[in-house]
Design a protein around this nucleic acid. Structure first.
Lengths: 223, 223
DNA sequence: GTCTATAGCAGGATAGAC
DNA sequence: GTCTATCCTGCTATAGAC
């Protein structure tokens, strides 16, 4: 899957080190750390087997460098996108806060492939944390989570207490991550067809669901 | 983590094949398929290196058998729990449907360790699908998802259209999976302390959030 | 900075004795 | 059904020529 368009042409002009990082990210995101060999990475990068050790010392370090030099910057982009979108929206409402957040994750400047790589990498860390997890939590999740919580609290009534707010944020985050992360599952249900506008649809849904749940309920009516 | 209590004593009375499955499940769930070696599994099961090949043919098959003979039955338990809980609740309301669903996943008869193993295994498949994924989707997710969708539709107004309902179900499922699956992340935020009653708290939250979102909003008020 | 060659080892798998 | 011994492949990592 994901046609390799970027091969020969781009490779010529890119430094070995960068090509290694690109291919490593691609392969690690697709199949995880342990299922990918250094041989495979160097071959994909059209470089020598020894290149990984020369440029990064060892495999583990290459993996970490993928997070440091590729993943973190993209996470910053998402964060920036969230802040900007919120700033541009003027007087913020709950809708705007949630919408900005969801958009930053599901839409934004990244290409679909890039986003897929991005979220597959972090999904791997969520399931099987390595050293990179710590890095990512401290530098990305904690500040982002904090800001979102703060922004949301500002526009919510004071009747909503702190713990409830935290769980609310987790719930929204769960959807945002999940709709990126569980694509295989979603695809098997919704099917591959559907409108390409799916991202917008998802954002709308997340906003709506976050603000009012499944919709107007007819409680106590039964059957 | 997860003290090994079940070692020597239980091992004596259990068949090699079962011990292999137990230990395989434990190790695969903790670190994933590729990071675990057959040597490690047989050692943990206090059996011989050749035992895996004798009983299961190869490593991949052992992994699949873990899903077939350990994971699927537990998934059935969850499914049963959902159905029972719903039946017992008499005239169903949206609250009851969502609550039954969330409870089946987050509470229920499994031990905490068992549930952790269960969800770490499926998380791995969601991120890096193997042959087991197909099995699990067809035999568990599709029917469960279908039933939940159906039950929920019965108690929702007809104004909610089909696609919206599907997204609603995904959103609820996302929370339910996420609160099991992203424990490392949640733990780093909420901290390890807190009440042991956390499961009940989470179920309450999911129900509340699913039905009415973040809570009564003060829209258009700003700041 | 890139290459070849190879060390050195861990992995899955099997043959064959018991 | 369990064991030992062993094969063989594939891996990471490094030494050293260019």
């Amino acid at each position: 899957m994901a046609l390799k368009i970027r091969n020969s042409n781009n490779h010529k002009n890119e430094l070995t080190r960068d090509r290694l990082l690109d291919e490593a990210e691609d392969l690690f995101s697709q199949r995880g750390y342990h299922a990918v060999s250094v041989r495979e990475i160097t071959k994909a990068a059209e470089s020598n087997l020894a290149a990984v050790n020369y440029h990064f010392g060892n495999k583990q370090n290459l993996y970490l460098e993928v997070f440091r030099s590729r993943w973190l910057p993209r996470a910053s982009q998402i964060q920036q996108s969230f802040k900007q979108s919120l700033k541009n929206s003027g007087n913020p409402t709950p809708t705007m806060v949630v919408q900005s957040f969801a958009r930053a994750f599901l839409e934004g400047p990244m290409s679909a492939d890039e986003r897929t790589r991005h979220f597959k990498l972090i999904s791997g860390e969520l399931v099987q944390p390595t050293e990179a997890f710590e890095l990512v939590v401290e530098q990305v999740f904690r500040p982002l989570f904090g800001k979102f919580l703060e922004d949301l609290r500002k526009v919510m009534p004071d009747t909503v207490d702190e713990k409830q707010m935290i769980l609310n944020v987790f719930s929204i985050l769960s959807m945002v991550l999940y709709f990126n992360f569980a694509r295989p599952l979603i695809t098997t249900f919704v099917g591959g067809q559907e409108h390409n506008d799916i991202e917008t649809r998802l954002v709308d849904h997340i906003v709506q669901f976050s603000l009012s749940g499944v919709g107007s309920v007819k409680e106590e009516v039964g059957k």
